[in-house]
Amino acid sequence: MCETSCMAQTWVVVPMYNEASVIASVIKELRKSLPHVVCVDDCSTDDSAAQARSAGAIVVQHPINLGQGASLQTGFEFVRLIPEMTEVVTFDADGQHQVQDALDMVQRLRDEKLDIVIGSRFLDNRTDMSGLKRFVLRLATGYTRITTGMALTDAHNGLRVISRDMIFELQLRQNRMAHASELVDQISLHKATWAEHPTHIVYTEYSKSKGQSVLNAINILVEIIFK
């Protein structure tokens, strides 16, 4: 397995909004194997930024709340300025992802020389979720398949690994939740090479309370149609 030395070029972008209670432990866990973490604080009202900083992350703070998509794009633009950066991991701040999954995905991106590796909850049966959530996520992947021709099994997974070249191509304009679909659109537009990787998502009570309501799918759809 790849140890710290060869991971040194991998940067982790963590979009964050009011996650003070968990962010420090998430970042500490990440930094054991991925030391370069940039946290994009979307103008949190709690002390998330201080927590993240104390855990050793670089914190980029939005002066106003813009949304998760905007946070990701800010993170991308930050890491573009780092010459040593070879790939970028996007990782949710609520601790629902596994660091080991991220490491495996980085390895895969390098081994197979891919532009992007996208996490998927549906490639194995590890992730436990409600039937309704599963159904809405299925609808979303169906929509993605129709509009981009990419046969993704999970279009809205926050865990991704993106190559340096691809980071320079991405330009997310969807500030809120529609950015996940937009990202897939841009991947297909640039004819990037991609793969899906099975990931395990742990829905704790905390991440569930922070997660989006399935009704939000309607908002996402409207935002996509009326760009």
Partner: peptide, 13 residues
């Protein structure tokens, strides 16, 4: 506004 806020964030960092 997003573009501007982003520049502010990056400059402050």
């Amino acid at each position: 506004l997003t573009a501007m806020a982003r520049q502010v964030a990056l400059a402050r960092a």
